[in-house]
Design a binder for these strands. Sequence first.
DNA 1: GAGCTATATCGTTAAAATACGATGAGCGAC
DNA 2: GTCGCTCATCGTATTTTAACGATATAGCTC
Lengths: 113, 113
Amino acid sequence: MSDAAPPACCPPSDDRPDLRPIEGDEADQELAALAKAVGHPARVQILRLLARRASCVCGEIVDELPLAQSTVSQHLKVLKDAGLIRGEIDGPRTCYCIDNRALRRLKALVGGL
Amino acid sequence: MSDAAPPACCPPSDDRPDLRPIEGDEADQELAALAKAVGHPARVQILRLLARRASCVCGEIVDELPLAQSTVSQHLKVLKDAGLIRGEIDGPRTCYCIDNRALRRLKALVGGL
DNA sequence: GAGCTATATCGTTAAAATACGATGAGCGAC
DNA sequence: GTCGCTCATCGTATTTTAACGATATAGCTC
């Protein structure tokens, strides 16, 4: 149909309120895990890239970073395992986007320090 | 003089506005470094401890954590190297406190994601 | 001074992170 | 079907982190 169908891979951000506590043992673990995922320049760059292009990009990330494809893939996996991004297979490529719920959670946890 | 002189080790928080940019290459590096420092449960706990007792505690941190003294000292060093806390020698012990300027910076950087 | 306390640093070990190239799996085009 | 493209995973080497006990340093108290 359309010549440039938007992948529409990234579901709308989840706006349900997050009721989890912002302190305590579990929150500590969570904050540490999220912060650890952000704790690498390449991953910060990836997050910024994904934030800028609201829609998801895929291997374009590789072009933007001075790293090998496999390394970028690893960083994407770290971010995905932490829940900060989500990936959806879109035909031959994969489309990543920020998980706004997790990002909000991170902001809340850091804000609570 | 006084019998319980407050250590007064932690200087008042620096309230000057932070004019550094919140995005860009340097900000990325900075955010990654700060996040990396926060990216361990023990260090999150330490930050929380220091935040709760506005005044600085010292080796009490060791008592609160299930880690050896030398390990705690290492974590304190990581936080200090990242600029998130400051340590001041107070007689025979060392007094740590949160560097509010750095913490504010971290919050700003995370908020900018 | 000697002795005690509190903390930092050293040396070591084990585990995890980072990076890469090579390989494999999935999908579209032909 | 085969080819080509995109991406994930594997295998590996190097570096860094994390933990500990042991040791050194610095400052009180006597």
